[in-house]
Design a protein around this nucleic acid. Structure first.
Lengths: 205, 205
DNA sequence: TGAATGACAGATTTCAATATCTGTCATTCA
DNA sequence: TGAATGACAGATATTGAAATCTGTCATTCA
């Protein structure tokens, strides 16, 4: 069954497959070992515990699935549009997962539910991206002179209704898109400078 | 054991007590009947089902516990301060319940979790109150000319991170108060008129 | 000699037998 | 005669014995 040496990568891939197939409640490390054609003891040479293995799978998934956000966060789009784009993308990623592959989403939500550490890092990463956009907006004059870090957190919190997995049960009710759009408008309005119109970084083409 | 006639009110009170004592997972209508010294069949004369009974208990609790909000929503405080006050009160009510009586909160959260109907009405009620305040602010010129209903929903959504029971696990982490204050600031900023300063309803005393 | 094994202890989960619960209704009670 | 009862059927929950799982480690293997 096994082709090459037993590496963390191969274990990770097998674990992911097993988790997909059986779900987080049923997947055992014996299953993973079996899928690799090795004894379950061997798995423990590469991962300290089942929790460590699950964490690693979750980490990989989060990285893969959230990749599009990195690109948006550092794009050259004007900050207001970029923030909209980024928040919309975050929402869409989760929403599409929920609606498109509910079981898979449930699986990863379950993993996330008892992986404080990993989720914490992930959230920090996202907050950093929002902060980048906000800071860019403040610098360009598109946004008020807010504390970028604190404001990033406020934005993240304000939108959690639309991206926190525990809220997923609300994501396919009618009016959902409109509600999100309204919230975005309100937040963007809250970032707009009150007095002078923002100076543009570049003249419009 | 029983003093007077069997009324819905007495059943409700007994049901509440039983729910408090045993929790929503253990409380049975047999328990409720026993507490009243009647057969469980009698309970069904007054409530069509266990679900109806649980709904009624939840409704009563929500009404009681959210009473302070009504007063704030219709007070004469200037809309911006009033909105802050109202949202803070909503948060404090839930937060104090979670931190002060976690088991009781868990009980009512569990009831709420499968009482879409009741919760829906409750949310509508809360939205109505926010709408009242927003509309007052628009009228007084303290707020931009927003759609009061849609904006009320946006405000409710934006703050759900701080009042939705599913988020309760975050409510006693450090920095929580600051995060809430930041969010409030951002939302209020989003409501502030961009151009002229708001005209006051009354001259300051 | 370093990687893999598999037997093992203690913890956790499964499963089916048993008990309890919900909701109904023919009967009793006052 | 209207309110209360309690036996009942089907659904749901509990329980504890048996099975499985996690993580370790002395041993085997190449």
């Amino acid at each position: 069954m096994n082709d090459s040496a037993l590496t963390p990568e191969r274990i990770l891939a097998a674990a992911e497959e097993v988790l997909r197939r059986y779900g987080p409640g049923k997947a055992t490390v014996v299953d993973v070992a079996q899928a690799l054609g090795v004894s379950h003891g061997s798995v423990y040479r590469h991962f300290a515990s089942k929790v460590a293995l699950r964490d690693a799978v979750l980490r990989g998934w989060l990285e893969r699935v959230m990749a599009p956000l990195d690109a948006i966060a550092t794009s050259r789009t004007a900050p207001p549009a970029r923030l909209r784009q980024w928040l919309t993308a975050l929402r869409d990623i989760k929403r599409n997962k929920v609606l498109g592959e509910p079981e898979l989403f449930a699986t990863y939500s379950a993993l996330a539910a008892d992986a404080r550490e990993v989720v914490g890092e992930h959230v920090e990463h996202l907050l950093g991206q929002i902060e980048t956009i906000v800071a860019a907006g403040v610098k360009s004059g598109d946004f008020r002179k807010v504390d970028a870090q604190a404001t990033a957190l406020a934005i993240f919190d304000a939108t959690s209704r639309f991206h926190y997995p525990g809220m997923a049960h609300l994501w396919n009710t009618p009016g959902e898109d409109a509600a999100f759009a309204q919230l975005l408008d309100l937040l963007l309005a809250g970032l707009t400078p009150t007095t002078a119109p923002p100076r543009r970084r570049k003249s419009a083409s």
